[in-house]
Design a protein around this nucleic acid. Structure first.
Lengths: 120, 120
DNA sequence: GCAATAACCGATAAAAGATTCGGTATTCAT
DNA sequence: ATGAATACCGAATCTTTTATCGGTTATTGC
């Protein structure tokens, strides 16, 4: 994590929300955890487009902001589980709403993106 | 707009949603339009932390993805209005949910951010 | 004519964010 | 003891996004 050079206005709920779960993979990670993929390696396997490193980094931020909790057991295979806190769970409805919206409009969006590709 | 070098998986509704309204200012702009600030200069005055340039750029993207429509009148003062399309309006419930979430948890988030600042 | 306002665009700089790569440490199975 | 799996972390690098700046065009009021 690092501090930004340009200070942010966090007077707007929208900006705060994005601050917490607006990263490229954060929502996907929360979704994965919610679907039972609670360990880093599991999350990674469930979304191989992200690297393990980025998953670790985002988990660290989610942990910092109290969205997830971390439980480590010293057994083999080394077991670390990340679970949603109540704060994390409170994000789930938003998550599913965005997912629903995106799924509903995916055809349209993809069409537009394809146009862009054809131009370049 | 530019094409990415790293290809995106848009199989996930979440990613699609973020693609369309996940920019730093996009949701704020949609919110501003919804609150009656329909012209670029008005939007800018309603959220001076963003530059006019970035508002223009984001409006162009929102226009491209059919989230807003653009209406120009050749009168003085030069009048351009951006209005939400049905697609744009369909985002509003998500918007207000995120805003509500962010507002509810703003104290907690700010506290955490302050901690980070103190360290550095 | 000149300042002010509006909309907008291109180029480039800067910042933010993500990726890559190599490393540590642990434990188990062979 | 070697290899595989897990969880991490640091640093450099690259990509993406946002900011800055200067410019254009057009119209009105002075």
């Amino acid at each position: 994590m690092y501090t930004k050079k340009i200070e942010e206005d966090l007077n707007c709920g929208l900006r705060i929300g994005f601050k917490i779960f607006g990263g490229k993979w954060k929502m996907c990670i929360l979704d994965a955890i919610n679907n039972g993929f609670t360990r880093p390696a599991e999350i990674y396997r469930s979304m191989p487009d992200a690297t393990l490193r980025v998953i670790e980094m985002q988990l660290a931020e989610l942990l910092y902001f109290g969205v997830v909790d971390k439980y480590s057991e010293d057994v083999y295979p080394k077991k670390t589980e990340y679970r949603l806190t109540n704060l994390g769970k409170s994000i789930l409805p938003i998550l599913s709403q965005i997912d629903k919206w995106g799924t509903e409009h995916s055809a349209f969006v993809k069409e537009r993106l394809q146009e862009l590709d054809e131009v370049q």
